[in-house]
Design a protein around this nucleic acid. Sequence first.
DNA 1: ATAGTTAGCGTAATATTTACGATAAGTTTG
DNA 2: CAAACTTATCGTAAATATTACGCTAACTAT
Lengths: 248, 248
Amino acid sequence: MSIQMNQSLSVDCAVFGFDGRTLKVLLVERRDYAPDTQLDRLKLPGAMILENEKLPDAAIRVLEEATGLRKVYLKQIDIFSDPARVSGEELEWINRHHGIHSERVVTVGYYALVKLDDRTVAYTTAKGAQWVAVESIVRLAMDHKQILSAALTLLCREMCQSPVAFELLPRKFTIRQLQTLYGAVLGIELDNRNFRKKMLASGFLRPTADREQGVAHKPAQYFVFDRAAYKKAVKEKLRLGFIDNWRY
Amino acid sequence: MSIQMNQSLSVDCAVFGFDGRTLKVLLVERRDYAPDTQLDRLKLPGAMILENEKLPDAAIRVLEEATGLRKVYLKQIDIFSDPARVSGEELEWINRHHGIHSERVVTVGYYALVKLDDRTVAYTTAKGAQWVAVESIVRLAMDHKQILSAALTLLCREMCQSPVAFELLPRKFTIRQLQTLYGAVLGIELDNRNFRKKMLASGFLRPTADREQGVAHKPAQYFVFDRAAYKKAVKEKLRLGFIDNWRY
DNA sequence: ATAGTTAGCGTAATATTTACGATAAGTTTG
DNA sequence: CAAACTTATCGTAAATATTACGCTAACTAT
């Protein structure tokens, strides 16, 4: 076998948002393609890597194009390099769509976390994209379902090990919102009182003067995530976490 | 800017081994190249991706070529896609060396963990490769120092979060060996007695009937890593570890 | 006014972590 | 051969952290 030439590199992004109830992902419609089912028209936003462009920059470009947002949380999922991941009709579509002649397309998956505010929803829907509940997705174009699954697996792990949850919430949030998010993504039930105690004890939540308004119960205080405090704690604590929590 | 064509994909592997004292990495010499310094002759083992080959398979191929080993622990580090990571003389060398005409080489870094037994050391040195103490490495060819640094960062994190340490030890090991390994890689000191207690309590170490021989102190018992017990525990325990150890 | 809801505080029972003392079982040294 | 040295291995008490869950507060909807 000889060295692979005539290949292209692309990025595909699973952009996640949280609407207060369920986790959603941003999907776009594939044009100029007549598949047999409806769902195969939907894909993750993506692009080919350009000359003189680093991969993360390509992902940032796709993100901005799709959401209008610049500084978003972005993390590489994996590389999808199966020679058969796109072939036949799919490969032809890609070549036609981009005006290239690739024999093989290797893609790098990224996942992004965005705050699902009105402005972002307006921007994305104006572009013809849609926010779809993650659990409801059965099929996607090409191997994008597989990329999405890998993204979800990674998201769950990251949610457990780092404070990425805050990327999905508004800047000011209640502890209940945070708890609901954890519950929804990880599929677990959490005790109200212990969750609050633990979060506050962590020292990463700074209280604000604001409270909820117009809710049918005691209004909750809003908090903001104190990133500086988190970074300081990370620096100080090296942990061997794979067998419980352990330092010495 | 237009879509990047005429590029190739490579894999480079940081292969780690532990000699009982320090962490070492496998380096190979670059031939047909006259650099100004000695160290730039040394590089991580790597290869171009072949037609019809998946990236992980390419890494496995490189690994087997370099060490003679098949089933080794292998994990992707990152993608190094800076258009300027190889250029000028370096790019010419690559094209000449492989007989190709690439304008750009994107590489995928992998790190591997191997048991540094006599057979493996013999195989690698017979091939002209060398095991170099990680701390002593100042420069490497191309951006390989950067790849190595990324590998080390990831290795530290993995050592804390999963039982990869056992990949670097012989099948049978003493608790002290395990402790020394953790201390060496993470650069921390660990309490003898608590380390043992914690490790044994984890349930992942199965004692064997063997003991050390010929050591100038009370001979220690050998243990083996019980992978099945570990996998079972992982399944059962979902943890929100980023703020201490926490379940509910 | 009453019912319903979540916020937010507290506490007792467990469980885990940490610091460190003490003995055991070998080899090396004098 | 005894003494010195080294690491293994067992234990234990004090300090921390986790967990389960009761209770009151403060809102809205009816």
